[in-house]
Simulated scan of single mutants.
Amino acid sequence: MKKLLMLSSMLGLIGVSSNSSADTVLGVYAGAQGWNMGVEGGFSRDENLAQFGFEDETNSSFYLALEHLIPVIPNIKVIQTEYSTEGGTSLTSTFTFGDEVYSANTLLETDIDLSTTDYILYYEILDNDIASIDIGINAKQVDGEFVVVDSETQRSAIEDFDGFVPMAYGRLAFGVPGTGLGVYAEGSFLSIDDSSISDYQVALTYSFVESLAIDLTLQAGYRSTALDIEDIDGIFADLEFDGAFAGIEVHF
């Protein structure tokens, strides 16, 4: 919540100063998305993951990007995404989590409160009405809390973790001049040792307001995030979140 308030404050301050100048000095892009995601995978305190069946959830994502005309200084984008969900499993073997040990055949419930914040520095390699290409680096902060509860005895265990993962970032967009229609693909990727993380989305866009003061664009597409992590604050996880999303972007 603090991160979302920070983004809102930044938008309010910067939007006032940049509205009159459009993109002549500073361009501001702010967006919000609703994501209907399915979840698969599991987690543990070691390499022996417990696999859970998760419920589909609708979560949110917000972003703010600042673009300028100084070639040597990268542009900045911050993305905040929620991945909260619930699930359960019948254990096939002994599972240790927190200070609790759960035996095989235990009916275990879980509550995942997971979020990521992407701090992206990028350069515009190409930018015109037909195509744009951005490349850069991303420091993805993964912040989460996993709760497991024995559905019969209500014995619970909680583990939280927080860490940064360096990733490569890219975005490719195409537009049809004079129509407001476009398409883009955007993602961050990492594969190192036994860990790999990917986070990408593809979408169709329609700009229904285009003026000197403000542009408004609708988005509809598909997003997928895969977290295969080894020992972030002692947490091991292999989770995949994917599904359709819809959003809106404001450009000052």
Rank of each mutant, 00 (worst) to 15 (best):
I214V: 13
V183G: 10
V202R: 04
D215Q: 12
G175N: 14
S195W: 07
S195K: 05
D233K: 09
F236R: 02
G187Y: 11
Q219V: 03
S188P: 11
S195Q: 12
V209E: 03
I192G: 11
Y222G: 02
Y222R: 02
D238A: 12
D233H: 08
A237E: 14
I232W: 01
G178M: 09
D233F: 00
T179P: 10
V209I: 15
L212K: 15
I235A: 12
S198E: 09
A213Q: 05
L172S: 01
F174H: 06
R223Q: 13
S195H: 05
I232Q: 11
F189V: 14
E230M: 01
D215C: 03
L227R: 04
G187C: 11
D199T: 02
D215V: 01
S195Y: 07
F174R: 06
G178V: 10
I232P: 10
F236C: 00
R223K: 13
L212A: 13
S198T: 13
V202P: 01
D233W: 00
D228M: 03
Q219H: 15
A203V: 08
L181T: 03
G175F: 07
L181Q: 01
F241S: 13
D238N: 14
D215P: 01
I232E: 11
S195L: 05
L216K: 01
A203C: 09
G182I: 05
F236W: 13
Q201D: 05
Y222E: 04
T179A: 13
L239Q: 12
L218K: 00
S211E: 12
P177G: 10
R223M: 06
I235Q: 09
F174L: 14
F241Q: 12
D199Q: 06
T179C: 09
A185S: 10
D228R: 13
R171G: 09
A213V: 11
I235D: 08
E240Y: 00
L172R: 03
A237F: 00
L212Q: 14
A213K: 06
V176K: 02
A203L: 09
V176M: 13
F236G: 01
F241R: 04
P177W: 08
Y206S: 08
L212I: 02
A173V: 05
L227C: 10
A213F: 07
S191G: 08
A226V: 11
S224H: 11
S196F: 09
F208R: 04
A220N: 07
A220M: 14
A203D: 10
Y200V: 05
G234Q: 04
R171W: 00
I197E: 04
I229C: 02
E186A: 08
L216A: 12
A203I: 02
S224I: 08
S224M: 12
F174V: 15
S198I: 02
S224R: 15
R171S: 15
